[in-house]
Write a protein that binds this DNA or RNA. Sequence first.
RNA 1: GGGAGAGUUCCCGAGUGGCCAAAGGGAGCAGACUGUAAAUCUGCCGUCAGUGACUUCAGUGGUUCGAAUCCACUCUCUCCCA
Length: 432
Amino acid sequence: MFLCYNSVKRVVCRIGKNRAGFQNYDLIYVTIMASDQRFELFLLLRTRRGIQRGYTMFHLLRQEGAARRCELVTPHGAVQTPAFMNVATCGAIKGAVSAYDLREIGCQVQLCNTYHLHLRPGEEVVRELGGLRAFTGWDGPILTDSGGFQVFSLAKLRNIREEGVTFASHISGARIFMGPEESIRIQSALGSTIAMAFDECVENPAPLDYAQASCERTYRWLLRCQEEMERCNARDGTVNPRQMLFGINQGCTYDALRLRHMEQIAALDLDGYAIGGLAVGEPKEDMYRIISLVEPAMPAHKPRYLMGVGTPENILEAVRLGIDLFDCVMPSRNARHGHMFTWDGVINLNNAKYARDDGAIDPLCQCPTCRRHTRAYLHHLRKAGEMLAMRLCVLHNLWFYNHLLERIREALDAGTFAAFYAECAGRLDRRI
RNA sequence: GGGAGAGUUCCCGAGUGGCCAAAGGGAGCAGACUGUAAAUCUGCCGUCAGUGACUUCAGUGGUUCGAAUCCACUCUCUCCCA
């Protein structure tokens, strides 16, 4: 995930070719910094918006059908895609997983949440302490979600208006306001690599007229996000690397809404495009249909992110349909509840049948947990309420997700994705 | 030896004549979880059988239309006095 000297040469070379998507940029300075025995790439760029530190680039390495094997180069490190982003909502992956565990489980990108970090500890604290990367100890790329999902998940505690959303803090009950400008300013202060646009994630099912009104508002919010992001980047541009902004497609399960909205946001030259508002209760066939519908309208030279998805099979299917980035709470949350992913399907470690099972969670797995511990031991730790049980289980599931994506990348590199897909489909999500 | 109290379904523990197969925990068993208000939530939890039936509240016997609940004795445990 980090650039070695060879890949830096390659990057420079590609910039020199002036490829589509970054012809507005002019490379003026390159540094290679060694820290923690790894190399990081910092570039100073002259763009049409002035001189900025840091450079991002996204390029397609291989393609098989709609499935893409890409590389996203950011000032905070490169990301090989398709990739899974590990969810650390409040700055930590729940289940006692530390930043120093992340490298070991194959994490490339960490995801944090604007709403949660705004409430606690507050973005100014994080900014003072050097930004999220310094604060959390994770020195790779970080994506911050905008708080748009909380418009959905905290539906009982919020009120939406054109200007933005008023939440009753789920911690203190205090009223807090968050609109597009607030969300972007907070994300800028947090110093994430990628900021997400502030959107409304609409529940399913939703009436057409509501879905349409919400979708149009989300578009207006995106324009405001873009303006605010430019302001923030212009202000911090020579101090912090330029922060990326991803737009989010909405429109519930209405094809016309989805497609029109995607075409609208695709015209805005954002750094990446996300599909939001899926996996919120609709059948997975609907989800796949929306992805295939909207995918051709997504700019090919920008990263594509399917938000909040999903099960291993959801991810496999979405890669096949052309998605590059994923995040999901499922591996960590389900691990805390004993629900473990394996290459043969899903097991529930709480079940009595594992009390004397001396095998690893997954016999094929090389994760820190499976290398050392039996199902019987983990079953016992769970029953005994030991917090080590959660930690070991979360490490396994996250390893599984990150390595699922790694194997997908290997298959794409080798041109064998179709075979890999056929081997796994129908197997990963089944209960065993 | 004398006195006081207590024994409830796997455990703890409510229940003092019908609304009791018996509150509430815990344990146990299973299920859910998709941009995290989640180490959470839901269901089952005496036995059979798809309305219901049957066997239970230390034991035995009794009172009553009806007893986990009242009476008698027995057993066990705890505490106090000698």
